[in-house]
Amino acid sequence: MRRDHFRPALLVIASIGAGAIGWNGHVVLLPVALVFPVLWSRARTRSVAALVSAGYFLMASRGLPQGVAAFYATDLWPGLALWLCASVSFVTVHAVLWTKRSGVRQFRYLLAAALTALPPFGITGWAHPITAAGVLFPGWGWWGLVAATAGLMGLITRMWPAVALAFLGFWFWSAANWTDPKLPEGWQGVDLEVGASLGRDASIQRHRDLIATVKNIGSERISSVVLPESSLGFLTPTVERLWVEALQGTEISVVAGAATIDAEAYDNVLVLLSADGGRLLYRERMPVPGSMWQPWRLWLGTSGSARANFFANPVATVGDRQVAPLICYEQLVVWPVLQSMLHDPDLILAVGNGWWTKGTSIVAIQRAIAVAWAKLFARPLVLSFNT
């Protein structure tokens, strides 16, 4: 009786630990997240399965309340509310699909994993254990994804100790031989530390400072320079002309974050600028729910929401390269990168504007996820963040 009394508490505590360790921003620790499906399968009631799911998800996303408070310059209560609301889809899916029937439990988990990787549940499908595939099976590509998925199902069966030992073997081998993804030849990402002013300071001086930074980096060896999300603020003909004129006489191409606006909504975008002119490169598929993507505004006929382009433009062309772009929030969920990899891009481009995450591990987690996917598919990676 005492063992049965303490078992649920131990499962929840272990799930909290898995969320804390697996999602702390160190890429080689991502496989710790694989403890979650084991704990979920060991629950003996649906309510305990829900608590295990909540403990894992809430700890993995623990930086959200503080980040939201910083973004809106408020106390923690709005962030706490959003944190709890965001956990609802993850917890609901795993609670509803939990079953006592051991013979079908692994298939139920497979369905839960698929649902939390794809919209609509996948819109808040953070901390997905499948991300660990990039650490366990670097360079395996889609076969690595299949192997990780099969292993996740195996962790739900009675053979889970053997599957766990196999995962440990792959993990230790990978960690012992770990190298970060390479930069693509001729590319360089720029990390900035200008805080909340990026994208909000529209002064000529700010643009001149960014142009000087780009020119200092550009050389015969570096021809493509990447700036973080929101670097240019709102994209206007004046801003575009300023940059195009400044790049005259150079061979530099600049990929930079910006925003375009119309009467209904705005798009979070990447633009390509060079001496030959400027063009829209990419529209963000999944902006941050709540703070950026506010679909109720469109439903009510009001403006102010970022537009979610969901499955549009999975790849973009820069010169002779096919690029898989991921802006900020898209790095935390699963389907954008997998959709992009279906098109066999030459490199992954991950940018963000994480000034509001100061004091949290959110940007480190974003970087770790981007590195994991780049390692899984053996693609060069360009990172560019503002903090």
Rank of each mutant, 00 (worst) to 15 (best):
A60I: 04
R42V: 09
Q66P: 02
V38M: 14
V38L: 10
L30K: 11
A60T: 03
G67T: 00
M59W: 11
L30Q: 09
A54N: 02
A50F: 05
V48N: 00
V28N: 13
L58C: 09
V32Q: 05
A33E: 08
R42E: 15
P37Q: 12
R42M: 15
T74S: 14
L51G: 06
R62W: 11
Y56H: 02
R44C: 06
L51A: 15
T45S: 13
L39P: 01
L58D: 03
V27Q: 06
R46P: 03
W40A: 07
F71K: 03
V68Y: 04
A73H: 05
G63S: 09
V38Y: 09
A49L: 03
V48C: 09
T74P: 10
L64T: 08
Y56C: 03
V52R: 00
V35P: 06
A33L: 10
L51Y: 09
L30S: 08
V48R: 02
L58T: 03
A70R: 11
F57H: 08
G55T: 04
G67Q: 03
L30W: 09
P65F: 11
V32A: 14
V48F: 09
A33W: 04
Y72R: 13
L29P: 02
T74D: 05
L30P: 10
P65M: 08
T45H: 11
A60P: 00
A54Q: 01
R62M: 13
V27F: 09
L58R: 00
A73E: 05
Y72L: 15
P37Y: 10
A60M: 07
P37F: 10
V28P: 04
A73C: 03
S41D: 06
M59C: 14
L58S: 06
R44H: 13
L29Q: 07
A69N: 05
W40G: 07
A54Y: 09
T45V: 02
A33H: 07
S47E: 11
P31V: 12
A49E: 02
F57V: 04
A33Q: 11
V52C: 05
G55M: 07
R46G: 10
A43C: 12
R62T: 07
R42D: 13
L58V: 03
M59Y: 02
R46N: 05
S41Y: 01
L30A: 13
V48H: 01
A33G: 14
V32S: 07
A69Q: 04
P31M: 11
A50W: 08
A49Q: 06
V32C: 14
R42Y: 09
V28E: 13
R44G: 14
Y56T: 04
A49M: 02
A43G: 03
A70L: 09
V68I: 15
A33F: 10
